[in-house]
Amino acid sequence: RKEMTAACTPRRRIINLTSVLSLQEEINEQGHEVLREMLHNHSFVGCVNPQWALAQHQTKLYLLNTTKLSEELFYQILIYDFANFGVLRLSEPAPLFDLAMLALDSPESGWTEEDGPKEGLAEYIVEFLKKKAEMLADYFSLEIDEEGNLIGLPLLIDNYVPPLEGLPIFILRLATEVNWDEEKECFESLSKECAMFYSIRKQYISEESTLSGQQSEVPGSIPNSWKWTVEHIVYKALRSHILPPKHFTEDGNILQLANLPDLYKVFERC
Protein backbone atom coordinates (compact mmCIF):
# COMPACT_ATOMS: atom_id res chain seq x y z
CA ARG A 1 0.00 0.00 0.00
CA LYS A 2 2.86 2.43 0.62
CA GLU A 3 3.75 2.37 -3.07
CA MET A 4 0.24 3.40 -4.08
CA THR A 5 0.43 6.31 -6.51
CA ALA A 6 -2.60 7.26 -8.58
CA ALA A 7 -0.95 10.12 -10.47
CA CYS A 8 2.54 10.15 -11.93
CA THR A 9 5.07 12.12 -9.88
CA PRO A 10 8.75 12.55 -10.78
CA ARG A 11 10.19 11.41 -7.45
CA ARG A 12 8.74 10.17 -4.20
CA ARG A 13 9.25 11.71 -0.76
CA ILE A 14 9.29 9.30 2.15
CA ILE A 15 6.85 10.53 4.79
CA ASN A 16 7.40 9.30 8.35
CA LEU A 17 5.09 11.69 10.19
CA THR A 18 3.42 9.73 13.00
CA SER A 19 0.11 11.45 12.32
CA VAL A 20 0.07 10.36 8.66
CA LEU A 21 1.23 6.81 9.42
CA SER A 22 -1.56 6.57 12.01
CA LEU A 23 -4.18 7.68 9.47
CA GLN A 24 -2.84 5.09 7.01
CA GLU A 25 -3.10 2.39 9.65
CA GLU A 26 -6.70 3.37 10.41
CA ILE A 27 -7.59 2.88 6.74
CA ASN A 28 -5.99 -0.58 6.83
CA GLU A 29 -7.79 -1.57 10.02
CA GLN A 30 -11.18 -0.49 8.68
CA GLY A 31 -10.72 -2.11 5.27
CA HIS A 32 -12.90 -4.88 3.83
CA GLU A 33 -10.91 -7.32 1.67
CA VAL A 34 -13.97 -8.91 0.01
CA LEU A 35 -15.17 -5.49 -1.17
CA ARG A 36 -11.66 -4.68 -2.38
CA GLU A 37 -11.59 -7.89 -4.43
CA MET A 38 -15.02 -7.10 -5.89
CA LEU A 39 -13.99 -3.58 -6.94
CA HIS A 40 -10.64 -4.83 -8.25
CA ASN A 41 -12.31 -7.35 -10.57
CA HIS A 42 -15.62 -5.65 -11.40
CA SER A 43 -17.01 -5.10 -14.88
CA PHE A 44 -18.45 -1.61 -15.25
CA VAL A 45 -22.02 -1.70 -16.60
CA GLY A 46 -22.99 1.98 -16.72
CA CYS A 47 -23.92 5.18 -14.91
CA VAL A 48 -27.48 5.51 -13.60
CA ASN A 49 -26.79 9.18 -12.78
CA PRO A 50 -23.80 11.08 -11.35
CA GLN A 51 -24.39 9.53 -7.90
CA TRP A 52 -25.03 5.88 -8.81
CA ALA A 53 -23.50 3.31 -11.17
CA LEU A 54 -24.03 -0.37 -11.97
CA ALA A 55 -21.23 -2.93 -11.93
CA GLN A 56 -21.03 -6.69 -12.25
CA HIS A 57 -18.73 -9.00 -10.33
CA GLN A 58 -18.84 -12.68 -11.21
CA THR A 59 -22.57 -13.51 -11.23
CA LYS A 60 -23.73 -10.58 -9.08
CA LEU A 61 -25.01 -7.17 -10.13
CA TYR A 62 -24.25 -4.23 -7.82
CA LEU A 63 -25.50 -0.68 -7.42
CA LEU A 64 -22.56 1.49 -6.32
CA ASN A 65 -22.63 4.95 -4.76
CA THR A 66 -20.14 6.74 -7.01
CA THR A 67 -20.21 9.83 -4.79
CA LYS A 68 -19.17 7.98 -1.62
CA LEU A 69 -16.77 5.63 -3.39
CA SER A 70 -14.98 8.48 -5.17
CA GLU A 71 -14.83 10.49 -1.93
CA GLU A 72 -13.23 7.54 -0.12
CA LEU A 73 -10.89 6.96 -3.08
CA PHE A 74 -9.62 10.53 -3.01
CA TYR A 75 -9.30 10.53 0.79
CA GLN A 76 -7.14 7.39 0.68
CA ILE A 77 -4.99 8.81 -2.13
CA LEU A 78 -4.49 12.00 -0.08
CA ILE A 79 -3.40 9.96 2.95
CA TYR A 80 -1.25 7.35 1.17
CA ASP A 81 0.34 9.74 -1.33
CA PHE A 82 0.69 12.51 1.28
CA ALA A 83 3.10 15.24 0.11
CA ASN A 84 3.69 13.47 -3.21
CA PHE A 85 1.20 15.11 -5.54
CA GLY A 86 1.67 16.78 -8.87
CA VAL A 87 -0.02 20.13 -9.45
CA LEU A 88 -3.06 21.01 -11.55
CA ARG A 89 -2.31 24.54 -12.75
CA LEU A 90 -5.33 26.81 -13.02
CA SER A 91 -5.56 28.47 -16.43
CA GLU A 92 -5.71 31.81 -14.61
CA PRO A 93 -5.32 32.74 -10.91
CA ALA A 94 -8.56 32.50 -8.91
CA PRO A 95 -8.80 35.23 -6.22
CA LEU A 96 -9.64 33.66 -2.87
CA PHE A 97 -11.70 36.75 -1.99
CA ASP A 98 -13.97 36.24 -5.00
CA LEU A 99 -14.30 32.52 -4.28
CA ALA A 100 -15.17 33.21 -0.65
CA MET A 101 -17.78 35.79 -1.66
CA LEU A 102 -19.35 33.34 -4.11
CA ALA A 103 -19.50 30.74 -1.35
CA LEU A 104 -21.05 33.14 1.17
CA ASP A 105 -23.67 34.14 -1.41
CA SER A 106 -24.66 30.47 -1.72
CA PRO A 107 -27.38 29.04 0.57
CA GLU A 108 -25.02 26.09 1.12
CA SER A 109 -22.77 28.33 3.23
CA GLY A 110 -25.47 28.90 5.85
CA TRP A 111 -24.46 32.58 6.14
CA THR A 112 -26.78 34.82 8.16
CA GLU A 113 -26.60 38.52 9.05
CA GLU A 114 -25.49 37.58 12.57
CA ASP A 115 -22.25 36.25 11.05
CA GLY A 116 -21.27 39.78 10.04
CA PRO A 117 -20.61 41.40 6.65
CA LYS A 118 -19.64 38.95 3.92
CA GLU A 119 -16.78 41.17 2.77
CA GLY A 120 -15.17 41.07 6.20
CA LEU A 121 -15.51 37.30 6.39
CA ALA A 122 -14.07 36.90 2.90
CA GLU A 123 -11.07 39.08 3.80
CA TYR A 124 -10.51 36.98 6.92
CA ILE A 125 -10.61 33.76 4.86
CA VAL A 126 -8.01 35.16 2.43
CA GLU A 127 -5.61 36.21 5.19
CA PHE A 128 -6.13 32.97 7.12
CA LEU A 129 -5.40 30.72 4.12
CA LYS A 130 -2.42 32.86 3.06
CA LYS A 131 -0.87 32.07 6.46
CA LYS A 132 -1.34 28.34 5.75
CA ALA A 133 -0.06 28.60 2.15
CA GLU A 134 3.38 27.08 2.79
CA MET A 135 1.96 23.96 4.44
CA LEU A 136 -0.85 23.61 1.89
CA ALA A 137 1.64 23.75 -0.98
CA ASP A 138 4.21 21.46 0.63
CA TYR A 139 1.89 18.66 1.76
CA PHE A 140 -1.15 19.02 -0.52
CA SER A 141 0.14 20.80 -3.67
CA LEU A 142 -2.59 23.38 -3.06
CA GLU A 143 -0.88 26.58 -4.16
CA ILE A 144 -1.81 30.13 -3.09
CA ASP A 145 0.28 33.10 -4.24
CA GLU A 146 1.26 36.18 -2.20
CA GLU A 147 -1.67 38.18 -3.59
CA GLY A 148 -4.18 35.66 -2.24
CA ASN A 149 -4.94 33.86 -5.50
CA LEU A 150 -5.41 30.12 -5.83
CA ILE A 151 -3.07 29.02 -8.62
CA GLY A 152 -2.78 25.23 -8.23
CA LEU A 153 -4.67 22.16 -7.00
CA PRO A 154 -3.34 18.67 -6.23
CA LEU A 155 -3.26 16.19 -9.11
CA LEU A 156 -4.75 13.12 -7.43
CA ILE A 157 -5.50 11.00 -10.50
CA ASP A 158 -3.96 11.51 -13.92
CA ASN A 159 -6.35 13.25 -16.34
CA TYR A 160 -8.93 14.06 -13.66
CA VAL A 161 -10.08 17.61 -12.92
CA PRO A 162 -12.42 18.11 -9.94
CA PRO A 163 -15.80 19.79 -10.55
CA LEU A 164 -14.69 23.42 -10.23
CA GLU A 165 -18.27 24.51 -9.53
CA GLY A 166 -17.56 23.27 -6.00
CA LEU A 167 -14.40 25.38 -5.60
CA PRO A 168 -15.99 28.35 -3.72
CA ILE A 169 -17.53 26.14 -1.02
CA PHE A 170 -14.28 24.16 -0.78
CA ILE A 171 -12.31 27.34 -0.06
CA LEU A 172 -14.86 28.42 2.55
CA ARG A 173 -14.77 25.03 4.26
CA LEU A 174 -10.95 24.98 4.27
CA ALA A 175 -11.08 28.01 6.53
CA THR A 176 -14.08 26.98 8.66
CA GLU A 177 -14.28 23.17 8.84
CA VAL A 178 -10.64 22.05 9.14
CA ASN A 179 -9.21 21.43 12.61
CA TRP A 180 -6.05 23.53 12.36
CA ASP A 181 -4.97 23.02 15.99
CA GLU A 182 -3.90 19.35 16.12
CA GLU A 183 -1.63 17.83 13.47
CA LYS A 184 -3.39 14.49 12.92
CA GLU A 185 -6.88 16.02 13.04
CA CYS A 186 -5.72 18.77 10.69
CA PHE A 187 -4.41 16.36 8.05
CA GLU A 188 -7.47 14.13 8.41
CA SER A 189 -10.09 16.89 8.20
CA LEU A 190 -8.22 18.73 5.43
CA SER A 191 -7.97 15.51 3.41
CA LYS A 192 -11.68 14.83 3.93
CA GLU A 193 -12.63 18.32 2.74
CA CYS A 194 -10.38 17.94 -0.29
CA ALA A 195 -11.79 14.47 -1.03
CA MET A 196 -15.35 15.77 -0.86
CA PHE A 197 -14.46 18.57 -3.31
CA TYR A 198 -12.87 16.09 -5.73
CA SER A 199 -15.68 13.52 -5.50
CA ILE A 200 -18.39 13.03 -8.13
CA ARG A 201 -21.36 15.01 -6.78
CA LYS A 202 -24.58 15.39 -8.72
CA GLN A 203 -25.19 19.02 -7.68
CA TYR A 204 -22.04 20.04 -9.56
CA ILE A 205 -22.46 17.88 -12.66
CA SER A 206 -24.69 18.42 -15.68
CA GLU A 207 -24.93 16.34 -18.85
CA GLU A 208 -22.43 18.74 -20.47
CA SER A 209 -19.89 18.52 -17.64
CA THR A 210 -16.40 17.24 -18.36
CA LEU A 211 -14.10 16.16 -15.53
CA SER A 212 -11.23 15.00 -17.69
CA GLY A 213 -8.06 16.87 -18.50
CA GLN A 214 -8.01 15.27 -21.95
CA GLN A 215 -10.13 15.46 -25.06
CA SER A 216 -11.93 12.32 -26.19
CA GLU A 217 -10.01 9.94 -28.42
CA VAL A 218 -11.91 10.90 -31.57
CA PRO A 219 -10.16 13.86 -33.30
CA GLY A 220 -12.32 16.96 -33.51
CA SER A 221 -14.95 15.64 -31.11
CA ILE A 222 -16.27 17.35 -27.99
CA PRO A 223 -14.50 16.85 -24.64
CA ASN A 224 -15.23 13.67 -22.72
CA SER A 225 -18.47 13.70 -20.78
CA TRP A 226 -18.60 13.05 -17.05
CA LYS A 227 -19.88 9.52 -17.80
CA TRP A 228 -16.70 8.71 -19.73
CA THR A 229 -14.60 10.09 -16.88
CA VAL A 230 -16.53 8.13 -14.25
CA GLU A 231 -16.04 4.85 -16.13
CA HIS A 232 -12.54 5.23 -17.56
CA ILE A 233 -10.82 7.32 -14.88
CA VAL A 234 -12.65 7.06 -11.54
CA TYR A 235 -13.78 3.42 -11.65
CA LYS A 236 -10.47 2.44 -13.22
CA ALA A 237 -8.73 3.98 -10.18
CA LEU A 238 -11.16 2.19 -7.85
CA ARG A 239 -9.76 -1.12 -9.14
CA SER A 240 -6.34 -0.50 -7.63
CA HIS A 241 -6.37 2.51 -5.32
CA ILE A 242 -9.01 1.89 -2.67
CA LEU A 243 -9.48 -0.38 0.33
CA PRO A 244 -13.23 0.02 0.95
CA PRO A 245 -14.18 0.46 4.60
CA LYS A 246 -16.29 -2.23 6.29
CA HIS A 247 -19.19 0.17 6.82
CA PHE A 248 -19.80 0.26 3.04
CA THR A 249 -21.39 -3.20 3.44
CA GLU A 250 -23.94 -1.82 5.90
CA ASP A 251 -24.76 1.77 4.91
CA GLY A 252 -26.17 1.23 1.42
CA ASN A 253 -23.18 2.52 -0.54
CA ILE A 254 -22.65 -0.91 -2.16
CA LEU A 255 -25.88 -2.82 -2.81
CA GLN A 256 -26.25 -6.23 -4.40
CA LEU A 257 -29.24 -5.97 -6.73
CA ALA A 258 -29.37 -9.43 -8.23
CA ASN A 259 -27.69 -12.78 -8.61
CA LEU A 260 -27.65 -13.31 -12.38
CA PRO A 261 -28.28 -17.11 -12.39
CA ASP A 262 -31.47 -16.43 -10.42
CA LEU A 263 -32.51 -13.87 -13.03
CA TYR A 264 -31.84 -16.34 -15.83
CA LYS A 265 -34.16 -18.82 -14.13
CA VAL A 266 -36.89 -16.17 -14.03
CA PHE A 267 -36.47 -15.43 -17.74
CA GLU A 268 -36.52 -19.14 -18.56
CA ARG A 269 -40.00 -19.34 -17.03
CA CYS A 270 -41.28 -16.45 -19.16
Rank of each mutant, 00 (worst) to 15 (best):
L96W: 00
W228E: 07
I151S: 07
I77F: 14
P223W: 11
L136M: 10
I169T: 11
R89I: 14
A53Q: 01
W111T: 14
T176K: 01
D181M: 10
C8E: 07
F82M: 01
P117S: 15
R12N: 08
Y139N: 03
P95G: 06
M4T: 04
A122Q: 01
E108A: 05
E37T: 11
R269K: 05
E37S: 09
P117Q: 11
Y204L: 10
E72S: 08
A175L: 15
L17H: 04
S212Y: 08
E185F: 12
H40A: 06
V126W: 11
C8S: 12
K192F: 13
Q203E: 12
M38Y: 14
G110P: 01
L69K: 00
L142I: 03
M135N: 03
V230A: 08
S141L: 12
K192Q: 09
T67L: 15
K192L: 10
G213P: 04
S221I: 09
E147D: 09
E182C: 05
N41L: 07
L90E: 00
I242N: 12
H241V: 11
L243T: 08
Q58A: 06
D105M: 08
H247N: 03
E193K: 02
P223A: 08
Y204T: 09
I171K: 00
Y235P: 00
V87T: 05
V234H: 02
T229E: 09
I205K: 04
I222W: 12
K192H: 10
T229G: 05
K265G: 06
S199P: 01
P223T: 06
K68F: 14
A100V: 02
D105H: 05
H32A: 05
Y204A: 10
G120C: 15
S199T: 07
V126P: 01
L61S: 02
L96G: 00
F170P: 00
K2W: 14
E29N: 07
E119D: 11
Q51W: 08
K265C: 07
S106G: 08
S216H: 09
D158L: 14
S109C: 14
E134W: 06
S221P: 12
D98N: 04
E134K: 02
L150A: 01
R201C: 12
K130V: 14
N16P: 11
C194E: 01
E143A: 07
S91R: 08
E123F: 15
L190V: 03
S189A: 03
I144F: 07
G152I: 00
L99W: 01
M135K: 02
L211K: 08
K68V: 08
N49R: 14
K130G: 15
L90C: 08
L17Y: 15
D262K: 12
L21N: 02
L238F: 07
V87W: 11
E37F: 14
E26W: 13
G86V: 13
N224V: 08
L88V: 10
L153V: 06
F197A: 05
L69C: 08
V178A: 01
P154I: 00
F267G: 03
E127A: 03
E193W: 02
S191D: 01
A100F: 15
D158I: 05
D181I: 10
P50I: 06
R1E: 15
P117C: 15
F248D: 12
R11N: 11
I157P: 00
E268Q: 12
L142M: 09
L17I: 03
C186I: 02
I15W: 15
V218G: 06
K132L: 01
I79R: 15
E250D: 04
I233Q: 09
P154H: 00
G220L: 13
D181L: 08
K227D: 09
W226G: 04
I144H: 01
K118R: 15
F197Q: 01
I144L: 07
I169P: 14
N149H: 05
E183K: 02
K236R: 11
F197L: 14
T249N: 05
W52D: 04
L96Q: 00
F170H: 02
H241K: 11
N224M: 06
L164W: 04
M135L: 04
P95H: 10
Y62M: 09
N259G: 08
R89E: 14
E134N: 02
N84T: 13
C8L: 11
P219R: 06
R239L: 08
L190D: 00
D138T: 03
Q76H: 14
E177M: 14
K118V: 15
S109Q: 02
D262Q: 13
L153M: 05
S225E: 12
A175S: 07
L23K: 11
V218I: 13
F85W: 14
E268C: 14
I27A: 13
P163W: 04
T210M: 06
Q30R: 05
E114Q: 07
G110V: 02
S216V: 10
L90K: 00
L21I: 06
Y139S: 06
D262W: 15
N224C: 07
S191E: 02
V218A: 07
L63N: 05
V234L: 03
R11Q: 13
A122S: 10
Y139K: 03
L90H: 00
P223F: 09
P163T: 06
S216C: 07
E143D: 08
N259A: 06
R89P: 11
F267K: 01
H57D: 09
R1L: 12
L121G: 01
E119F: 15
Q30N: 09
R269A: 11
A94P: 05
R12M: 14
W228M: 04
L243R: 07
Y124H: 01
E182K: 03
N16V: 14
R1D: 15
Q256S: 04
T249K: 04
K131T: 12
L150F: 04
P162R: 00
E33Y: 14
C270N: 15
V178H: 01
S199F: 01
P50R: 04
E188G: 03
K227F: 08
D181G: 02
P168M: 01
I242L: 07
L174S: 01
L102S: 09
L90I: 04
K118Y: 15
K265S: 04
N159V: 12
I125N: 02
N159W: 13
N49I: 09
E108P: 04
Q214W: 12
P117T: 09
L150N: 01
T5G: 12
F85I: 12
R239T: 13
N49E: 05
T59E: 05
V218E: 07
F170V: 00
D181Y: 09
P93S: 04
V218M: 07
M196E: 05
G148E: 06
E29I: 10
E29P: 13
L174I: 02
I27Y: 14
L104E: 00
N179T: 04
R269M: 15
Q76P: 00
A7F: 15
D262S: 08
F128L: 03
D181Q: 03
E268K: 12
E3R: 09
T67Y: 14
E183D: 03
I171S: 01
F248H: 06
K227V: 06
L64H: 12
S141K: 11
L156D: 00
P95L: 03
V234E: 00
K227C: 07
P10M: 12
L156V: 11
Y160I: 03
L174T: 01
N224D: 10
L150V: 07
M196R: 05
E217D: 10
I222K: 05
R173H: 13
A83N: 03
E268N: 05
E231C: 14
I79D: 15
F267N: 03
